[in-house]
Design a protein around this nucleic acid. Sequence first.
RNA 1: GGGCGAGUGGUGAAAUUGGUAUACACGUCAGACUCAAAAUCUGAUGGCAGCAAUGUCGUGAGGGUUCAAGUCCCUCCUCGCCCACCA
Length: 820
Amino acid sequence: MKPYHPNEIEPKWQAIWEATKTFEAKDFAKQPKMYIAEMFPYPSGYGLHVGHVRNFMIVDVLARFYRTLGHNVMRPFGYDTFGLPAENYAIKSGLPPQETTLTNINHFREQFKRMGMGVDWSREINTSDPEYYRFTQWIFKKLFEKGLAYQADNFQWWCPVDKTVLANEQVENGHCWRCGSEVEKKRMKQWFFKITAYADELLADIDELDWPEKIKTMQKNWIGKSVGAEVEFEVENTKTERKTARGKTRDLPTKIKVFTTRPDTIFGATFVVLAPEHRLISQLVTKNTRGEVEQYVTSALRKSEVERQESKAKTGVFTGSYALNPMTKKLIPIWVADYVLGSYGEGAVMAVPAHDERDFEFAEKFDLPIVQVIEGGGGEKCYHGEGALVNSGQFDGIDSAKAREEIVRELAKLGIGREKTTYKMRDWLISRQRYWGAPIPIAYDKTGKAHAIPDDQLPVLLPKISDYLPDDSGHSPLAKDKKFMKVVINGEEMTRESDTMDGYACSSWYLLRYADPHNSQQAWDKKKVDYWNPVDCYVGGDHAVAHLLYVRFWCKFFADEGLLGFREPVKKLLYNGYINAPDGKKMSKSKGNVIDPLDIVEQGYGADALRTYEMFIGPYDMDAAWSTEGLSGVHRFLNRVWTLTQEYLNAKNPAKTAKHRQMLLKLQHSTIKRVTEDLHRNSFNTAVAALMEMVNGLYKLKVDGFSKEWGSAIQALLVLLSPFAPHLASELFEQLGGDLNRATWPEWDEKYLMAETATVVVQVNGKLRGKLTVDAASLEDVAKLEKLAKKEPSVKKYLEGQTIKKVIVLPKNKLVNIVL
RNA sequence: GGGCGAGUGGUGAAAUUGGUAUACACGUCAGACUCAAAAUCUGAUGGCAGCAAUGUCGUGAGGGUUCAAGUCCCUCCUCGCCCACCA
């Protein structure tokens, strides 16, 4: 008998799939389409480890499952090659990123193929390919033309190690998402995409998505919508103190805008606080306060975000000026404090210490007045709940929720306030002072005005330059390439933009490009995208906010441009957990605990065992720790499948009818049902368990010899197994004389699942006391079940001398409960 | 500090709608095969008491609802993730 040697059969089937283009997806086929993809990887130089590949295996299992079910499946693959991680790797290895990228792609592809991935390789995408990024640039232009790509001169996050600005989404607790170093604030003119224009829709549509709640909540928090009011506070005019050094009277700011979600507490606003970044500070200081304020502002701005977060102790200084509370008509002092954020709302707040904890802390520290204007809180000094208004003039007694509306209406009437909605989300900063990215397709004329590069000059090719190291100049290394920087547009000589685009720009539309990957005329053909997209199932374990928000933003923009016919790009999202090292720690090259999938394959376990094990290890959305014992258990299972099939093939004169025909059929059909239902609900681990149970059951039955009917049972088993262990399943199916590639997913017949006898559980007071074996027909007879239950010896002894209050008979649950 | 999720054998974990808790696998123990080992096959395996039949306890802790709770409700503990001065 032939032994199971995965390394002999796996290359054979991989070659067949490749040669016959088994997994190429057909546009516009009649069957229902099913588009399944993983978040494409950036091909790091270290290759994939067994933790990464879980993501791809989930996709492959689903793709093969739906394919066998008869769907027109597209399961593409690509590489996210532009961006910081790829460039940093190239720098480290001392080679140009063009070179390392190609090497890494080849390595990834090799690993991928040897894991038996059923990929449509004709749709392979590489974001640093000019044929791809010409359209990334084209999309930039589209956004630019619509005013959704713009430049702004502001404080930005700057990573001193990676020497580039970063988007808000790329700053994690004040640290760079890539290198982990502390970021700084730097004032720079940068390019932004106006994602905030879609903030409302991005928020509203979250509820309809079939995505994990965790991710949906994170996106909601990130967008951070607050409904409130914008109110203008008049600045008290005290001209005499406002002489400049030259003795001239300066222009006075006449008003300060604040944002508040609690306009109902305006009568309790006893001071105003400006963020240190606020533009009007220098005009509000007096000659007495100037020195102190300037010193405070300088030191506050120099503080890193991490330092600001570490200490929540309130600090601040008085500007020397006063504002008028428009409701109480009282003069209230204007302070500067770093607990107010410059980049949110108006960068200024009306402080209501009686009803806001931060304002309260500040007022306590600097001895500022605290006026209660909302009832409630039960004697707490600071109460931020709802309640009736007090100390609020004409609004006294009105409930806070209603007072919010009335006070805003009053402010509007006075022309000094209006309803306003703000978002925590900021626009997406996309320019990078780095080499390895898609050049921004912009050039500046002599006056400094930005012009889009004409379509016929796209792509703006990224030139190969020898010195591509980032520097502190605030410009990308491209700025040093004089030839690149010069461009003639419509006869006018201009200077190119030297910054490149954030890598996330490239990955924000690749899911559309897969539908039409070789189109050289346009980014995609609308018909193809409308056929394939949105993605039916998108699988990944990262990028909860950044990527998944950008993809949604661009989709909505494209829909508004008439480029596609849907407004959400991803129907269903599966967010998979990590596979960690055996000790539970993250696998990483630096810790030296990575396990290479190819090593597992070559050790003799094979790709099938690796795949099946990673599906069996636990629920796909939970983290798990790698275990070699677990892997060998799965390998043992596959070996049992192999052995069983060989024994069946070698059996001499199999009987016409199996001795335990009903048991065989029940085993077969119940397994079909379980595996099918488990795959539909993404319960991969229990699907594998069901297959193991079937094989264990077949081993017990084979003691009584094989029959011809075993052929269809084994074939069904192999088809059910094929998403997990496609090589083994294909090989054995062929040995049985069939072609798995043409096989359809088996269906179960409920009639085989009906047992002739059933076990009914008998409880007394909810405790298991006995079991009845009855024929199927008796299940319908409630009275009979009750009678049998009471007669059962193991039950009877509990009933003696007791009064039965109630008997619950549930034929469906095969349960009788006798209540005493 | 706020939000979300989780806590079940020696281990990874099942239990889909409130209805037999611990499926499947690992590990361990025993048996078969073998000169022997590995591999393979078969069986046992939640704790406690008992030769056994069996009894009893048992899903982080405590309470509640229910004929019946791992599952629902309340309080608390532990761990994980996310957000964190957003007015």
